[in-house]
Write a protein that binds this DNA or RNA. Structure first.
Lengths: 197, 197
DNA sequence: GGCGATGCGGATGAGCCATCCAGTTAGACT
DNA sequence: AGTCTAACTGGATGGCTCATCCGCATCGCC
């Protein structure tokens, strides 16, 4: 009932569409369904039936990465060091968002085209909530931070890393910004050079 | 020589265009020159002559706020507490970006339509650089932070505050995020609530 | 009041998006 | 194998936004 099992040629075309969409996303081109139809040598109608909107296609492209992220989130829940678990999860989130250009718009969108996307986002969000709660209980993170802040903050960091600067340096930059956010721009007043605390 | 002194009717129209553009920006509508022409009861050509692109109009709308910000920046340079000066300047920057919707896109744009905008951005940037240098010399901020990071980080914070949430709470949220960034999400290990260290 | 420069305005064409339906095809059933 | 039909395909098409261009109106100086 999830999917009527798609005819063979249709499946092939679906694959081709998603694949070129992936390429376009990677090279930074915005997805335009008409354009994709031309590239894949399919009629516009075909593309539009598979993906009613550009968002739907984008979410399909983003799905695997989101799935992977969710899986890593589950793993993070197994870590018994709350601080490390949260930081690791956030780091992976950021890296994914900077590496895969399809993620940023999908994460930022208030409403999703595909139910699966909503589901994945919910999963990720609840993983984040849990990790944050544990970290807070352990006294590792500031108390005024709610789980509702997590997504915006991550989007903000990713955005900051993407605003300027060459694509090659983005990963590097994003990591630096995340560290800055975690540790604060201010030097902690209680200890000098933190060194390897 | 900057401006040939503009005929009276032209000046009036210019004013009307900018004014309604301001309104549109405030209500969150994206600027479309054709649309504006209709609202102001002017021909499209008129609008396009005054502002060759939507960006040019947007920058014109943003200019006063940028000017004000630059002025406040100059004041901040007079403050003899480097930490407070930097923090205050950053806070004002964020507040401006959240309050005035025209600022975010202008700040984020890599290239400007109006020379005046470039000039203003350069001023702001060098004020930021100076404030940051002083704060760093005073040992208040982390050393790995360069002035090139300032703009992206501020854009990131503003973006984070704007992604979700009702417009009314944005200022509040933005302030919280800035504090979080300055002080760090982690509880500083050297002071404050030692609790369950 | 006349004249040249300047500004005005909308008709226009280029480009994108999304729909719709006539034609085709895959694969289930006999 | 042959037939049937539901599903897939493709592009012609209309609605829309954008930006240009040029004949006409208006301003303000003499």
């Amino acid at each position: 009932m999830t999917t009527a099992p798609l005819r063979k040629d249709a499946a092939r075309n679906w694959e081709r569409i998603v694949s070129t969409a992936r390429d376009l996303v990677d090279e930074g081109t915005p997805l335009q369904l008409n354009d994709i139809a031309r590239r894949v040598h399919l009629g516009v109608g075909t593309v539009y039936r598979h993906f009613p909107t550009a968002e739907a296609l984008l979410e399909t492209v983003a799905a695997p990465t989101l799935e992977a992220l969710a899986a890593q989130g589950e793993q993070a829940l197994a870590d018994d060091d709350p601080g490390r678990a949260l930081a690791g999860f956030l780091r992976r989130t950021i890296e994914a968002q900077v590496t895969d250009a399809s993620l940023a718009p999908v994460s930022a969108a208030a409403t999703d085209a595909l139910p699966r996307t909503t589901e994945l986002k919910r999963t990720l969000s609840s993983v984040g909530t849990e990790l944050l709660a544990r970290a807070r209980d352990a006294g590792v993170v500031r108390a005024d931070l709610t789980s509702a802040d997590l997504v915006p903050l991550m989007c903000g960091v990713a955005y900051a890393a993407n605003v300027h600067g060459a694509p090659e340096t983005r990963l590097e930059t994003a990591r630096r910004y995340l560290t800055a956010l975690l540790e604060g721009l201010y030097v902690s007043r209680g200890h000098g050079d933190p060194g390897p605390a």
